[in-house]
Nucleic acid binder design. Sequence first.
DNA 1: CAGAGACTGGAACGGCGTTCCAGAGATGTC
DNA 2: GACATCTCTGGAACGCCGTTCCAGTCTCTG
Lengths: 240, 240
Amino acid sequence: MATRTRRPERREEPLSRQRIVEAAIALLDTAGEGALTFRALAERLATGPGAIYWHVTGKDELLNAATDAVIAATMTTDTASTADTAGTGAATPQEAIRALALGVFDAIDAHPWIGTQLARAPSQSPLLRVFEHLGRHIQTLGVPRPAQFTAASALLNYILGVGGQNAANARGHHQHTSRTEFLSTTATAWANLDPDEYPFTRNVADQLRDHDDRTEFLAGLDLILTGITTHQNPTDPTPP
Amino acid sequence: MATRTRRPERREEPLSRQRIVEAAIALLDTAGEGALTFRALAERLATGPGAIYWHVTGKDELLNAATDAVIAATMTTDTASTADTAGTGAATPQEAIRALALGVFDAIDAHPWIGTQLARAPSQSPLLRVFEHLGRHIQTLGVPRPAQFTAASALLNYILGVGGQNAANARGHHQHTSRTEFLSTTATAWANLDPDEYPFTRNVADQLRDHDDRTEFLAGLDLILTGITTHQNPTDPTPP
DNA sequence: CAGAGACTGGAACGGCGTTCCAGAGATGTC
DNA sequence: GACATCTCTGGAACGCCGTTCCAGTCTCTG
């Protein structure tokens, strides 16, 4: 091991998988989902597209790695429950789940491309992380073993649904339209729908205009949490 | 109106928006999400790519129209509650919601590309249809007005989350791998995870292997329904 | 029957993910 | 020191995509 040369700076910086992932995240954050291109990435790293393929198998893996990096950071920062099973900073398992879910929610809010990615990924590492942490809190909630899988899946799927939708909305107004303006436009469109075909949607149009995404997300989450803690089998178990 | 010539067959068939959408659906169903190409579509319709653009503004609109066609069909077939507010064929609003959600679930199961599309679309017509019908049933459930928006959104987001995930899984094994084999492989992978990092996921690996997607979907849905009907505000309304 | 509009379809443009490959730089061997 | 080797680079090229362009056809109207 003595033969290893370790000059502090070789040429500039040796192009590693981590540097590529970081550059990809920066590109996605600043210029949007569509901006992640091997050519753009190569230019940002002052190299050619071919060099990137030495460290990364393709675009799918790169996107997955970028998503995983952000989710993993969220997981250790916001929840502070990586080591032990129960939430360390939260008083109740419910609060721990809310904190965890809000962490994912805020991560998607800050990096909308994550929402798209999570919704389209197969059961890869980023999703597994969230699922695992959700499951632990559900265990401490005292949910019976057979229902744990259902509860964790339901929470995860809800989070993914909201995340995907938020990502789609973020893609919608991008830069030139503020969120308020976007909501207002949509609400007005809802209010002007055909009264015969869309009575309900017309009714709640003003609620769409005034709502807060985070509050609404938490309210929906609490609906599921109530369902989980109330009782496990509300329906008759008749098979189809 | 008498001057209109109506020869039974003009040349072959006059290439209409509807014919294009139908061909697109057929292409997506038989060859998968990635197969929808303006060139492939043109070949199937025995024309050139340029001709399609006369009837359709672009790929996004085409995908949206295809999704809307399938969702609209599901809506009038499976639920039979297009005209009146309450479910016509269902005894309770809960059952009506289950039937509606299962309709969307089965539609995504039959056409996985819909799951991807719904998860990435902005608040377009297909989503609005589902939202509207969900909302009507929630109204008949007796949910107080301010909570109706939350309840309908939560249900919709859950459905979208499951749909997106199912679509991703379907993309995963495509053809050569059966669903059972795919589940088995994933379950084994879960069981072999690091016991320190993923204790919960390891625990439920066998439940993943044996579960039924539809049953699991309904169980999660019932969790939310229980939450909706139990009581509306389980948490203190302290603002952050 | 001539002109106008609706509609067609093939060619072409720019950009993408990915592959290929000649070669540079450091490392290991006599 | 010379040479072979392995890691890593980056520019060129391939094939496919969404989309645009446009010369041309087909049908109806005046």
